[in-house]
Design a binder for these strands. Structure first.
Lengths: 81, 81
DNA sequence: CGTGTAAGGAATTCTGACACG
DNA sequence: CGTGTAAGGAATTCTGACACG
């Protein structure tokens, strides 16, 4: 599930998001797709679920920097643990 | 695992096969990728495993028509069952 | 039979920017 | 801030064919 194998077009279909939104969430460091040698983004099924969650949070009034903070605290926690 | 989401380039990387081989196995009806609206093939992780198996069988001396027969008998069996 | 390759075209994806608010 | 869009280029994939054996 965590293999990054899908191109952005497939993720668009699976999430219902636009490519613009997906790229923006990456820009805000909410998701971290791999890249092919040619520069194309590659996503996992986990990324798809995460993207849906991100969009739900934004719809509920959160801002990307807040979601970013949450991710950072998770990371910090996992480093301690 | 059976979601057809990968393009042929990713399958090439995951299987070590050439695109030519992958397309040929499809032509011989040993795998059945989906297609995007643009005509691009989409494969699942199951397809990747199946492709590896196909290639092993060919290396062991089997021919594509023999593998095709095996698939057909499987199908016939599952129809009865 | 199974696979390689060159050919030309079509679909996909990329980045940086301007726009709105 | 989050998203839409037009722009131009680069990487990807497609098909049908010729080749070898």
């Amino acid at each position: 599930m965590s293999y990054k194998v899908m191109s952005i077009g497939m993720v668009r279909q699976l999430t219902g998001l636009t490519e613009r939104q997906i790229r923006y969430y990456e820009d805000r460091q909410l998701i971290f797709p791999d890249r092919t040698s040619g520069g194309a983004r590659k996503f996992s099924f986990e990324d798809v679920e995460r993207l849906k969650e991100i969009h739900r949070k934004l719809r509920d009034g959160f801002h990307t920097f807040e979601l970013r903070k949450a991710i950072m605290s998770e990371t910090a926690h996992s480093i301690k643990t």
